[in-house]
């Protein structure tokens, strides 16, 4: 599991189950990290004339995405670590799917829009009841 990177698709499957695992308990966390994958890219440093070669890489670099449940120390045995590499030309597609998985997984957050809509609906109904001239929908 922690050996090597997963394919993007498998990463999403595992990430969903990581979110589901968290949901089974009343508390817990999911950590997602992204950074440039610059492993064994040191050839640029010596050959380049620029002062900061990493600012202008000769070719776009892939992005490393990691996900964990943040278990460490005493709970280290329960730690789940996932990682995947996103090539620079696949970023758009990856993040579109990533957004969906996260939206589904982060269900504990406050759903602001619905409650507001309900309140508005209630207020409307009250108005209608009081006024009486408007037709019910």
């Amino acid at each position: 599991m922690s050996k090597g990177h997963l394919s993007n698709d498998e990463f999403f499957v595992r990430l969903s189950s990581l979110f589901d695992e968290r949901r089974q308990k009343d508390h817990g966390s999911v950590y997602l990290t992204q950074k440039r994958l610059s492993y064994d890219k040191d050839t640029d440093v010596e050959s380049s004339e620029q002062q900061f070669p990493d600012l202008h890489p000769t070719a776009p670099l892939p992005i490393l995405i990691r996900a964990t449940n943040g278990k460490s120390k005493d709970n280290k045995a329960k730690k789940v670590k996932l990682s995947t590499v996103v090539e620079s030309d696949a970023i758009e597609g990856f993040f579109a799917k990533y957004a969906e998985v996260c939206k589904g997984g982060m269900s504990g957050l406050k759903k602001r829009d619905r409650s507001k809509a309900k309140e508005k609906l209630k207020a409307k109904k009250r108005k209608q009841a009081a006024g009486g001239d408007e037709v019910k929908k």
């Binding site: 992204q34 776009p60 620079s88 970023i91 990533y98 957004a99 996260c102 939206k103």
Partner: peptide, 25 residues
């Protein structure tokens, strides 16, 4: 930091946008 579910998809979009300078694009 946020507690609003409505922000999630936009924030991931932002992450995607930030991935561009990260990749050197």
């Amino acid at each position: 930091s946020t507690t609003k579910a409505a922000e999630v998809s936009r924030l991931i979009q932002i992450l995607g946008r930030l991935a561009r300078p990260m990749a050197g694009l």
